[in-house]
Every structure is written in C-alpha cells, then in structure tokens.
Amino acid sequence: MAIVTPENRGLRLVVRYTVLTIIAVIFCFPLVFMIMSSFKPSQQLLTDTGSLRAFLPVGDLSFDNYIEAFARAPIGLFVFNSMFVTGTTVILTLLICSMTAFSFVYLKWRGRGLVLSIILATLIVPFETIVIPLLLLASKLPWLGLHGIEWGWLNSYRVQIIPFVADGLTIFLFVQYFKDLPGELIEAARVEGASWPQIYRRIVMPLSGPVMATAAILKFLAMYNSYLWPLMVVQKEQYRPVMVGLQYFFQLNIAWGEIMAYLSLITVPVLAFYLLLQRAFIASIASTGVKG
C-alpha cells in the first residue's frame, strides 16, 4: 500500500512522468525514424538502421528524396483524392450512422432489436471475406451521371465512398452514447412540441460532440489507410488514393528514401486532423462512465 505524504509526492510525480515519457518516446520512434530517414540517401538510410543513428539527423541530409518523390508520383493528386474520399465518407458516416442510432434508441418501431443485432453482427465479419462479392456488385451498379445512366461504379470516387458511409461500429458507438443521454431531456423536448427531426438536430446532436469526435477519428484513420479496396476498384490514376500510390515506389530497385519522404508527406493530413479533434477526443474518453 503506497502512502502519499508531502515528502514523497514530488518523487511519485517524477516517477510517473518518467514512465509516461518513456512510453511516449517509444511510440514516437517509428515516426521519428520515418522523418529522419526521409532526409537521407537510400544507402546511408540502410546502414543507419543498424544503430541509433537511424533516429538522428546525421550524415548527408537533403530534400532530394522529396523532390524525387514528387517527380515519381502525382502526390498532390493522391493526397487530394484521399482527403476528398475520407472527408466525404466521414461526414456522411456521422450523419447516416447517428440518424440510424437515433431511430434505434428513440423511435419505437417493431423489430428494431433484431435489426440492430444483425448490424452489430456485421462487426465480426472481416472485410476480406465480402470484398469479392462487393467488387462484383460495384462493377454492375447503375449510376445516374451527366450522360444518363451508366453501369458499373469502378474507377470513381463514389465506389470508394458509398460502400463505407454506414458501418456497424459507428452505429454501435452512437447507440451506446444515445442510451446514456438522460431520457428526460428527450421527453421534455417532446412535451415542449419538438418533432423527432427537431429533437435530433436541436437536442441530441448538440450533446453528441464527444462521440462524434471519436467516431470521426476512427473512420478517418480507417478510410485514409484503406488499401485493398481502392487497389481493386480503381485502375485510373485520376482517382487513386495515397496508400495505393505507395506502389509507385516499389519498382525494380526500392527507393527507401523516397518512400520515407512520401510517407512523411501523407502523414501530415492525419496529424492535422488528429490535432483538430484531439481535445474533443480526450474529453470523450474522460467522460466515459462519468455522467455529469
């Protein structure tokens, strides 16, 4: 049993912060390695991996890798594609899944329990098992475009977005969160004359900041990192996302330095998005189980 006294409190803090710092540093190592390596020529990069030099800005540093990476792949286009697909998917997912969860939690329709359990069951189905049927489906679906009805969704943004705008995990997150919202708030709004859409927009959504941040971050990461699906459905460079773009660097001789430069560049949007939502994300974790 640890006893806290004024004398050892400082010591305890030192120990605690030391441990936390070590853990944080360990988590940073891959990131530091990536960024440092992106400035080194491939030859030096490979020899450095054998020592701590891998994490240090030493030796022959330059922006050459970045320049060559830009020459080899249309990075701007790939980042734009990924950001567009990811951003649109995140927004649509938040909208659709929160509405779905709203209906499961607040609207009393017959069979909702069964439908919800079916949706939750999809959580344990790995994407790889359904990817082939999904591909066949996507290759045949109709789409009303500018030139009338087109058949097949391959090589487009929509094929990367629409299959992912509703998912069991996000619905589950919203359902759990809504169940914990005080029911009397909803009832008060109903008695005050609000319709269900008004309750959704004016009461439930404004109180859902934490769960929206959580769901947005999880969805963002999953979408931004997606590789298998875009690899299968997008052959045209015009719609290619960043992860698939990585294959441009795995040619005859693998250009590790350029790969590191490419990865450093495509990590920037992730960090930016994360920093944006970090506060809300931490608030949501901190508020779990503690009802104010």
């Binding site: 005080p182 009397e184 708030l185 009832e187 008060a188 709004a189 109903r190 008695v191 005050e192 004359g193 609000a194 319709s195 009461i203 404004p206 109180l207």
Partner: peptide
Amino acid sequence: VQPKDRGVAMVFQSYAIFPH
C-alpha cells in the same frame, strides 16, 4: 395524440433542462 399536440407542459423530477 402526440405529446406536442396535447397542450400540456411538464416539469420533471430531474428538471431536464437542456445543458447546451
């Protein structure tokens, strides 16, 4: 009839005022 169309107002034990 839906609650909103009954012409009633309710005060709850937990007050149920909207925190936001």
